[in-house]
Amino acid sequence: MGCRHVPRGTSLAAVLAAVGLVGTLAVGEAVHWRAARRAGRLPRPTKGSTGLVVVLGFGNRGRRINVVNRWRARIAVRTARSARAAGASAQILCNGGAVLGTVAEAVLLRDYIENCIGWDGPVSIESESRSTWENVRNALPWIEAADWVAFASNGLHAEKARVYLERQRPELAGRLVAADDYRFGEMSLLKPVFAAVGLCKLRAVFHVKPPA
């Protein structure tokens, strides 16, 4: 009986592919960790304060909430719970219109937060926004009524929203606090994608004139 040989170079190719995958995942983690470190310089909710956690919706084609919006919802709830643990009160604002589907992202986020995560605090929706700029602009009435505000998304997207708030309403920038948006190993397969997209969009923010 003849022996079946593995083609020469196959093992090396597999090793290189594995190294490349691990490297890509590591870069994704590092970029999001650094974003969390930058956000960590912001103040924290204080005892007795009243705050707002704005969940920035992500394009959702179907009538069921997708994996990215579930991620953002988890970030929002743990941020609000962390504020509660510090003695602050918090409400969640679900933010986003029906950009890619027939159901507003805000509605999908609210239903998931209330029915699947078990958040028992107040939840509001803003279902007209179609971009991050509009997310921030349309959340202003809620932000104005709060002592502090956190944007719940991946760290780079949240950073972009904070820049937009500073541009739209500079006097409210002092109310910004960090969301609890980084967990090692959470959504690791998607972090490299959001790292690449997020870094490109952050660069563009500083070179493109903001919308009117």
Rank of each mutant, 00 (worst) to 15 (best):
S11K: 11
S11L: 15
A13P: 10
A13G: 11
A13M: 05
A13V: 14
A14K: 10
L16V: 10
A17S: 10
A17V: 14
V19G: 12
V19E: 09
G20M: 06
L21A: 11
L21Y: 09
V22Q: 13
G23R: 09
G23T: 05
L25I: 05
L25R: 09
L25G: 02
G28M: 01
G28E: 02
A30S: 08
V31L: 00
V31I: 01
V31K: 02
V31P: 02
H32N: 06
R34A: 12
R34Y: 07
A35L: 07
A35T: 08
A36R: 03
R37Y: 01
R38L: 15
R38Y: 11
R38S: 11
G40Q: 07
R41E: 13
R41F: 08
L42G: 04
P43A: 10
R44P: 12
K47E: 11
K47H: 15
S49P: 10
T50K: 14
G51P: 06
G51R: 01
L52K: 00
V54E: 01
V54I: 11
V54W: 01
V54D: 03
V54M: 05
V55G: 03
L56T: 00
L56W: 01
F58R: 11
G59M: 14
G59L: 13
N60H: 12
N60S: 10
N60V: 09
G62M: 08
R63M: 13
R63T: 15
I65M: 06
N66P: 03
V67P: 12
V68F: 03
V68R: 08
N69V: 08
R70K: 14
W71P: 08
R74W: 12
I75V: 02
I75R: 01
I75T: 04
A76W: 00
A76Q: 00
V77A: 06
A80Q: 02
S82A: 15
S82N: 14
A83L: 03
A83E: 06
R84C: 08
A85N: 11
A85G: 14
G87R: 13
G87I: 08
G87V: 13
G87D: 09
A88M: 03
A88K: 06
S89D: 10
S89T: 15
Q91P: 08
Q91F: 06
Q91R: 15
Q91K: 13
C94K: 04
G96R: 11
G96T: 07
A98W: 04
L100E: 14
L100V: 14
G101R: 12
G101T: 09
T102W: 13
T102P: 10
V103R: 08
A104K: 07
E105F: 02
A106R: 00
A106G: 00
L109T: 04
R110K: 07
I113W: 00
I113S: 02
E114I: 08
N115L: 14
I117Q: 03
I117A: 06
G118N: 09
G118V: 02
G118Y: 01
W119Y: 12
D120N: 13
D120C: 07
D120P: 09
G121K: 11
G121F: 03
P122G: 15
P122R: 00
P122I: 02
V123K: 00
V123T: 04
S124F: 05
I125V: 15
I125E: 01
E126G: 00
W133L: 05
